[in-house]
Design a protein around this nucleic acid. Structure first.
Lengths: 199, 199
DNA sequence: ATGTCTTTTGATAGTTACTGTCAAATTATA
DNA sequence: TATAATTTGACAGTAACTATCAAAAGACAT
């Protein structure tokens, strides 16, 4: 009765996953070729051989087709895998860096391209930043669990806010310097936060 | 030949300012009465006695009518008014708190209502967070000037990111606890950042 | 005040993201 | 194979925005 693992989980769900991936692929390609705003949902749907109605069944908005990802669970796993003697800040830092380190070269390249698009197009950036508030809440929960505090504790919330803020600053910088090492930038930035923001 | 101070600056510009304020007033009222999504630009325009075309000449988007403000220059002034023996972090902290302290009761009440709307409605929140990246850049410039570094220096960018992140976390909390003291929350949070994010 | 020049406005038409509905097609199940 | 559940696509509609252009209103010189 478990809803997810029925031995390759049934034809229906397999097909759905395949369609979804295809749509995202075509969308990214069209955005690259024509630009985000110049690409219509109708064009994406046509390229992926689905109807516009179906597009919106898979993705709630046009932004969503580019922004949807599953980094949060990866972050959770990486965080909880960190040794317990690390402080919450050391743990997120290590978790983020190692999560990126686990990515394939293809994944990294896609992430770079996505990040450039996202930070460049105002609509996308806005939606992405909005999504980050969820990640912020997630980080607060992780930090709360690790320190035995409540997620809405002032120190915990502030911690999560600072971590997300640093992430945003790194993402913005990385969009303008795509040849930089993202993991390195993030590691350095979170290191500075750990060191008390030396100036 | 200065374009701004021509002794109450001419009828045209005075009228524009008045219209703009009226539109924002009616918009806020309608959002309160009907909700943001249920309010159409057409309704706002009608209430303010302008055409929809004119609405979009004043505000580039529907979100903009609620989000447009002039806090950034206020922040700049407050920051640069801080004594030079304060660290950049102490200076932003003091600047923000004192800028809020200078607001009238009416301004504070409007800010509270705006913040609740913004953080509650996803579209508004997204656009507001997007605007905050500009403020982040601004803070980086202020900190750079004060420390003699470049605005794209890693330490400076990270500093600005952390400050903005903390602001976001406070805004989110304040939206859910409107009876709290915003300046107090912000002061406390930035204090924790100054103290190295104790957990 | 009058005429002229410049700026602002409103009407109109069009595009596109997104929603709701329903019948047809597809997949799961007995 | 029959039947039930799910997914899809077609269609119609709403509302945010854009572009264009003629009319209205303000600025300014005479």
């Amino acid at each position: 009765m478990s809803p997810d693992d029925k031995r390759t989980m049934g034809l229906r769900e397999r097909k759905k996953a395949k369609t979804m991936a295809a749509v995202q692929m075509h969308a990214l390609r069209l955005f690259r070729e024509l630009g985000y705003n110049a690409t219509t949902v109708e064009q994406i749907a046509e390229a992926a051989e689905i109807s516009p109605s179906t597009f919106f069944r898979y993705f709630s908005t046009k932004e969503d087709v580019l922004l949807r990802d599953n980094y949060d669970p990866v972050l959770v796993d990486a965080f909880e895998a960190q040794p317990s003697h690390l402080s919450p800040l050391q743990a997120v830092r290590q978790a983020m860096v190692s999560a990126i380190g686990d990515m394939s070269a293809d994944e990294l390249a896609t992430m770079r391209e996505r990040n450039q698009l996202i930070m460049t197009v105002p609509e996308l950036r806005a939606a992405a930043l909005n999504n980050l508030t969820q990640t912020m809440q997630l980080i607060a929960e992780l930090a709360a669990k690790r320190t035995g505090r409540e997620p809405d504790d002032a120190a915990v919330r502030t911690f999560a806010g600072a971590v997300i803020g640093v992430n945003i600053s790194v993402m913005l910088y990385y969009a303008e310097h795509p040849d930089a090492d993202f993991a390195g930038l993030l590691d350095e930035a979170l290191g500075k936060l750990e060191a008390g923001l030396p100036l």
